[in-house]
Amino acid sequence: MNKTDIQAMPAGLAGAGAGGTARPKVTTFATELGRIAAIGLFFAVCLFLFRSDPFILNMMAYTFLFAALSTSWNIIGGFGGQFSLGHGVFFAIGAYTTANLYFHWQVSPWLSLIPGMILASIVAVAVSWPTFRLKGPFFAIATLALNEVAFVLATYFDSVTGGPRGMLLPFKAGLVNMVFTSRLPYAIIMVGFLLISLVVAAYVLRGRLGYYLQAVHLDEDAARAAGIDVLKVKLTGMAISAALTGIGGALFAMYLRFVDPPTVLNIQDIGVKFLLIALIGGVGTLYGPLLGALLIIPLESYLRATLGGTIPGINLLILGGLLVLFALFMRRGIFGALQGAWERYRGARS
């Protein structure tokens, strides 16, 4: 095994190969549940402390939402190594499903999360079936094109999507309508979504499917030779990832109460952001995407708030630069770097 292989490995397995001295550190699902509960508690305290600051609450809502979305992307993109640039499509499906059901039939958004999830999964499986035979950059190109096609279709079929004008959802405050006058309930909902995605990701990662996905990521031919049904594993991972992304889209739609193609199908602001956050935090690690979102989203809203008026695009300009720098110098992200430092520290002590 050479050096590049270790770097390309999902972090869950990397401990086994790196250095040789470190023990393979594999936690159980129960351990991860405990950690996730601790994270939930910590965020609950944060929300309580800032309960009356709408600016901070807004930032936290976005941070948790994107942390959850990036965690969802990470299931297929990080664990499974399928670098989808098209997750914005599943996000948009969730957003439009909920928006339509609420707008036309006054269905409670809580209920319409379910059809949104199912629809996102079905579309994900249908479009991934042919595109999963493509590897690496080719898969990325195909999913990028998919996002573009979704944009075109969403603009064209204006009876479903409101076309380029978008859909403005009526303001009828109430728990059933998932519309609130304060930002606090939204932030709580986003934390809930984050915890759900983390639990699902942990369950996948520490279960059979997670190991299959990681095997496919490392070497698809070897995985197939070992008896793994590669296509089925990828499709299952994609379906789970897309379903969670669909929930995220629905919550986003209810938070903004506005859906239009340039917002939900923006490749740079939505589709690519999931993998950008994951890369900066640590692709393929369980908590990397959360860490990435905690850094990126506040940084971005700060830049947008302070410089966005005078220098348009400054937030994305810096994100693009970070993306290049992380690809060059921190391939395992912040989480991977911290993990490496911790292992070196432990190695030096023992």
């Binding site: 670098f83 692709v283 290049v324 060059l328």
Partner: peptide
């Protein structure tokens, strides 16, 4: 690093 090339 084909994946990192996509990112970069």
């Amino acid at each position: 690093e084909p994946f990192m090339q996509i990112f970069a």
